[in-house]
Every structure is written in C-alpha cells, then in structure tokens.
Design a protein around this nucleic acid. Structure first.
Lengths: 288, 288
DNA sequence: CGCCAATTTGAGTCCCATCAATATTTGTGG
DNA sequence: CCACAAATATTGATGGGACTCAAATTGGCG
C-alpha cells in the first residue's frame, strides 16, 4: 500500500528492479506479466505482447484489511489472484451496504474511474493476493494492443450486466429465492475456480450476506435453516453443501408449509408443458 | 416536449452523402459530428477532432417502439438526444423488470458489449431522437483520440456507479423513501436538461415506476398520495410538483399512519414529534 | 360516445423486520 | 491450556409495511 510510485513504471530496469523485486518477494510480493493477467481475467492475451515488457506487482492483504476507501484518490485497479473480498457502500447513516464479493479473476476499483476517486470500499474477507494494475498502465495498454481495448470494454460491460442481474434479483425475488440463487451462484464461482461447486464454506457472515441480498441476518439464517430442512442444502455454520441445485435455481418462494407439495407439482407441470422455458430470454420474449 | 434537436446541424461535404442525407431527412434523420456528441455526453471533445471527419446518424422512434431487444446481435450504441426511454429485463416468467429511464445525454446498449448481444430491452416512452454510434466507430475513436478513450471508460464507470446507487437504494430504503428519491432524482435530471426541476410530468406509468423501484403499482400510487397529503409534493395523474425537496431527499420512512390520522393523540403525539421529527435523518438515526 | 388502460382507494393477508434470548464459535490474555 | 469476552448464529414471538385481491373512477383515443 505504501510505495505505489515504483510500480507505475511499466518497463523494468533490470539492475535496479531485480533488487527491488527480491525485496518485495521477501514480503510476499510477486510479479505477473500481461499474459498471466489476461488469463486470470479470462480474456484473450494479445499475441503481440512481450512477456517481460510489462509486469504487475502483487500485494498481499490479511483478512480484515482495507484495500481502498470511499473517496480515496483513484489510481490503481486491483485483480483478485487469490482470496475473498467484499466491496461496500456506506450510506449517510453509516450503514454498510455490501455490493459484491469479488474473488479470483474479479476486478476491483472500476467505479473509481469516473470521478477519479473510489466510489466504494473494498475489504479483504480472507488473506488475499491482489494484482495491482496502475490505471495509467491500463489505459496505455489499450492503445498499444487494440485487442486489449476491446477486452477492457468487455470486462466493464460484464460488470454492468452483473449489476443489472443484481438489481433484478433484489427487486423481484423473495428472501428464499435470493438466498437460493446466492448459493448456486457461489457454487458456480467455486466450480470455475476449480473447487467443488457442491461443497464449500462461506467466507462471509450472515450479516454480510443479508446486506448483499437486502435482508436481515436473521432472515438469512432462518432461510438457510429452511432450505436445510427441505433437503435442498445442508448447512452447519459456514459449511455448505448444495444437494439439489436444480430446485435451488428454480425456487421462487417457499410455499406456506401446508401447500408446499402442491406448488412443487404446479411448477413441474408447467415446465413439462413447456410453458416456462426457463433461463432462455429468446423464448420468454416470444411469449409476449 | 417534442423537438429539442435543433442543436444538431448536419454538415455536408460529399456528393453521395448529401443524397443519402436528403433521403434520411425525409424520414426524420439528421447528423451530428463528434463535437456535438461529446457535448451531449458531457465529456470534453478532443481538440484534434475534425468536425466533418465522423458523422453520426440520428434515428427517430415513436412512443412505444422498441429500440433493441434482448439477445439481438449487438453492433451499435445509442445516445438519447431527445425524448424518454425505458430499459428492462424480462425474466424467465415473462415479467418485466425496468432497469433505467434514460433521457437526454444518456447512452444505451453498453450491456451488449460483453457478449456481443444486448442484455436488455430498450423501449421509447415518448417520441425520441436517438444518435447511433456504431460500436466499431466507438472503438476506433478511442484509438485515434487518446482523450476519448479515457472519456469512454469514464462513461462506463459512471454507469457502474449509478447502478451501485440503485442497488443500495433497492435493498435499504422504504417504499416512501424510494419514491421520494425517485422524484428528486428526476427533478435533478430535468434541471440539468434545462427544464424545471420543480414541476414536470412523468413519462412512465405507475407500473413502470413500481418495477423500477421494486414496488407494486398500488404502493407507488398510495405513496404518491401520502406525499401529496403531507404537502411535500402535489400530484395529479402524471403532473408532479415538488414542494419540499429537502424533506423528500432526507425522507427515510413515513410516520405510522396512526400518528398521522389521530390528530388528538395528546401527549404521545408531542413526544413523537420531539423524538421523531420525521424525515429528519440525523435525529431518527440518533434514536437507533 | 364507448372502450380500454391507467389510476385510486379499500380490506385482508403474509412476508419479513424487529426485538429478544440463547447457543456456539472465535479470539485473547493470563 | 483454560477462562473470559466478543463476535457470530440460531430460534422464537410479535408487529407492521408492502403485496394481493377487488372495486370504482378517471382519462386517453379511435
């Protein structure tokens, strides 16, 4: 967090830089080249890139450490290499509002570009290894490698789409559906990272989950218990097992205990009749 | 309410282009140059730009017309020059979820960059004049004018921040606060466009407002009536007057209906007034 | 004028927040 | 290593805010 000035030099001056690198390595820092960063972001690396041309510094954060603050002058983007993070707003009353739970491959700080000050706060949920991307380097790369500019727009567009999905979820779904989707989404993320998408443990508190989903921590806890009793998941503290991902994904609301069986029949009946072509936007618009 | 587009004067230099332009003009098309587009987006125009170098076509949409669909192949961005638009998601059950109400100076279609297909639907709420920006032109401009690339990142970042604010609002505020903020935000938008920020009329239905805010149309209607009775606004159908913007902005939750109706609730009323000077954020949090 | 969409308003219900008590886990220092 | 404190989770009881269902009214438009 301290000497960011040294890393804004894209080109490495071998003699001096290698000394510094050794020093950084001792405190847990590493360097990644452009190809590695692109792979992490799941975007195609420019063929023209020289692996040693541009290097990006790693920085480690311990659980609980703040990565950037609201209002802080913006100059670098962060890419999560390992570990778990939360980003949040703090409203005029001091209440925290969790906005996202970035993990491996996610990028932080984009919201700072607009006003050149970070618009959100980022805090490490676990020990993290973050890659620093000075914004100036970021912008310069777009001009050097045309394909990269396209990829950078794509990454920002993806973030916008993700937030749109979040808005839809927040304003349309019941508490049970929110929690169910949260778990399945998390599972998919873990799968992509090479871990089990079925069995994992949460890195965040019920409070943080509730804030993220627009619920209270008690409702989150109760909902997890309910999903547990219904056999869709098993949960003990932060240890989660997804037992019926299909049911979780299609869950809209937990029917009142008396009618639970009936509604389940209805849904399956509709699906069988092809009236609910789920998760296919093309078809659902055709219905109108 | 209709034709604001006198500011876009087509410049013609080529013979072929002028023929086409005449044809387009007959169906209501005009052209804007890069400088005019930048002004509309409120970003600095590159000094190196030749006014005749790149021209952007206008297209008019009538109220109710669709501008782009979900899943449609993405190739152009749209900038609102005049008129009002709504963008929306359609979930797997066919329910509409309004995402934004773009107006003059707003950009549409960014969500299509990621997958090269639009992720949302855009519909004109009134007659509209839209400027077409082919995505290829957009990308090429960033490479030609370095300042523009920065501005384009900034515009996308601004969109991300806007959606973050939306997420915070959806998950933390009461129905009254949502409606109140919606109105004050609209007022500010109208002010920026040169209209009255105090007195305006809504271009969208209660249904659409409710979808946008995560409420039902009945709740929106009831809330507007309540704000009307409290003297914060006056509302008749879609005609809105903001009478106390300060109160609206700081509104968290309406006092319980009992306290409003029971005029002669003696001591308790006074106590409530002292302890709960409603729509005063400072004090109401101090109580918590 | 007549039709249909939009809006308003009412009555009843339920989901979720709130308040509260307890249990369990984590962290810390002696 | 244990004890104690603080943080985190679970579970219950209760009330209220927003949804649902329903009816009446208004306004727009062919």
């Amino acid at each position: 967090m301290s000497n960011l000035s040294t890393l804004s030099q894209p080109k490495r001056n071998v003699d001096i830089a290698s000394q510094q690198e050794t020093a950084w390595r001792q405190q847990g820092s590493l360097w990644s080249n452009l190809r590695q960063v692109c792979e992490l972001l799941a975007i195609p690396a420019p063929a023209t890139a020289d692996d040693e041309d541009t290097l990006f510094q790693h920085v480690r954060y311990k659980a609980g450490q703040r990565i950037h603050r609201i209002g802080q002058a913006f100059d670098t983007l962060y890419i999560v290499n390992s570990g778990f993070v939360k980003t949040l707003h703090i409203d005029e009353f001091g209440n925290e509002q969790v906005l996202s739970f970035p993990m491996k491959g996610d990028i932080l700080g984009i919201d700072g570009i607009h006003k050149q000050h970070y618009a959100s706060e980022a805090v490490a949920l676990s020990d993290c290894d973050m890659i620093l991307v000075p914004y100036k380097t970021f912008a310069a790369l777009g001009r050097i490698h045309c394909e990269l500019e396209q990829a950078m727009f794509s990454v920002m567009s993806r973030e916008i789409v993700r937030e749109q999905m979040m808005i839809s979820m927040l304003s349309a779904l019941s508490a049970e559906a929110k929690v169910a989707r949260f778990l399945t989404n998390l599972g998919e993320r873990f799968s992509q990272m090479g871990y089990s998408g079925r069995s994992f443990n949460l890195r965040m508190t019920r409070q943080e989950i509730g804030s993220y989903l627009g619920l209270t921590l008690e409702t989150v806890s109760r909902t997890l218990s309910a999903l547990n009793e219904l056999g869709m998941i098993s949960v003990e503290q932060r240890e989660i097992n997804l037992l019926d991902t299909a049911a979780l994904k299609s869950l809209r609301r937990l029917p009142p205990a008396k009618a639970r069986n009936k509604v389940a029949e209805k849904v399956t009946a509709l699906v069988n009749k092809n009236l609910l072509p789920q998760w296919n936007p093309e078809l659902s618009t055709a219905i109108n």
